[in-house]
């Protein structure tokens, strides 16, 4: 889907530590800004990011209003077996965005 960019190597050697990047299009509206008429712009943020490999959690993050708009997150994973990585972002209202990427471990 558009609005999500994932960087996951297609292949990795067993035991190799790979870098994974995930970018989501989202305003991360802090709730502390005011519009041109002085009105407070309501908070609208992603609160949780998770990445799992075939159901096993690899990495998660709690976002607060000071995570920049269009949040980018870079983390690592030790490649143990081939599988499908699922990336999931959940906003303050429970709405979910997700995408997947496969990794082949040799």
């Amino acid at each position: 889907m558009t609005g999500i960019r994932l960087s996951v190597p297609e292949t990795a050697a067993r035991g190799e530590v790979v870098e994974i990047k995930a970018l989501l299009r989202h305003p991360m509206e802090s709730g502390f800004r005011r519009g041109s008429r002085g009105e407070v712009i309501p908070r609208d943020i992603i609160t949780r990011f998770e990445c799992d490999l075939d159901g096993t959690l690899v990495f998660a993050s709690d976002f607060h209003p000071a995570i920049a708009a269009n949040p980018l997150i870079t983390f690592h994973m030790r490649a143990t077996e081939s599988g499908v990585l699922t990336f999931r972002w959940t906003d303050q209202n429970g709405e979910v965005w997700s995408d997947t990427a496969s990794i082949a471990v040799t």
Binding site: S61, I67, I73, T74, R78
Partner: peptide, 17 residues
């Protein structure tokens, strides 16, 4: 923000903006 790592993380290095 808070980052939650696991033994699968392999390396304790995280970046964001």
């Amino acid at each position: 923000g808070q980052f939650h790592l696991t033994p699968f993380s392999g390396k304790a290095q995280v970046s964001t903006r």
